[in-house]
């Protein structure tokens, strides 16, 4: 039990430090890298909570796809020039004060008096043949199959809308015009040319 405690505090410390470094970093590429470290620490904490599938999904989907997308956009837009002179707003004291007040309030509400071990006792560990992904799949494909399909539709909408947003129709692109194809007449395509059928000046008939 002590080992798990040490793991929790190490990963929690990493989580807090890397997320603080993320919001304080000047360079946006650096803050993306700190966010990746944050996600890794969070995935470790999720593994401590026996949510193995979601932890691996967080690393594969978030670090593997979404964070790479962030890095790609940062490198593509070449924004480092425009953000070199960027600094924190005048809202810095207000922001820190609001965050501190919210933390204190939440610590009062969520303290060990309400959510301690005597209220929520530690559940016993699952046996070694327990499969988290099997349990999730059993729920997901029976009770939650309709939301699952809706999530697929949502991802399709996201694909279509992001392609539509960044698509540039500047007229230079070769594309198919269906109305022009349908309205074409035969005389637009075929030119009938009268040619005298003479070979070497001799009439050939």
């Amino acid at each position: 039990m002590l080992f798990i405690q040490i793991l929790f505090y190490v990963f929690g410390f990493l989580l807090i430090v890397s997320s603080l470094a993320m919001i304080l970093a000047r360079n946006s590429a650096k803050s993306v890298l700190f966010l990746i470290l944050t996600f890794f620490s969070a995935a470790s904490i999720w593994i401590l909570l026996e949510a193995e599938f979601l932890a691996i999904t967080l690393i594969l989907v978030y670090v593997g796809a979404v964070m790479v997308l962030f890095l790609f956009v940062i490198k593509m837009l070449d924004i480092d020039k425009s953000t070199l002179k960027a600094k924190f707003t005048g809202y810095l004291p207000l922001g820190v004060a609001v965050a501190a007040i919210v933390i204190i309030e939440m610590a009062l509400v969520l303290g060990s008096k309400q959510f301690g071990l005597h209220k929520f006792s530690l559940p016993e560990r699952h046996p070694s043949d327990y499969s988290n992904i099997t349990e999730l799949a059993m729920q997901l494909y029976t009770s939650y199959v309709y939301p699952f399909e809706l999530a697929a539709v949502l991802l399709l909408i996201a694909i279509i809308s992001s392609i539509t947003l960044v698509h540039r129709s500047d007229g230079k692109r070769k594309s198919q015009s269906v109305s022009a194809q349908v309205n074409v007449k035969a005389k637009d395509r075929i030119r009938v040319v009268k040619i005298d059928s003479k070979i070497n000046g001799v009439k050939n008939d």
Binding site: L15, I23, I45, Y91, V98, A100, I103, M106, L110, F115
Partner: peptide, 23 residues
């Protein structure tokens, strides 16, 4: 490690994100 430890940890992360939007 009790439930309140996890909850307070995620509350801290939430507030860091909130402060990041502010500043």
């Amino acid at each position: 490690i009790s439930l309140s430890d996890y909850l307070i940890l995620s509350a801290i992360i939430f507030c860091i994100g909130l402060a990041g939007i502010f500043i």
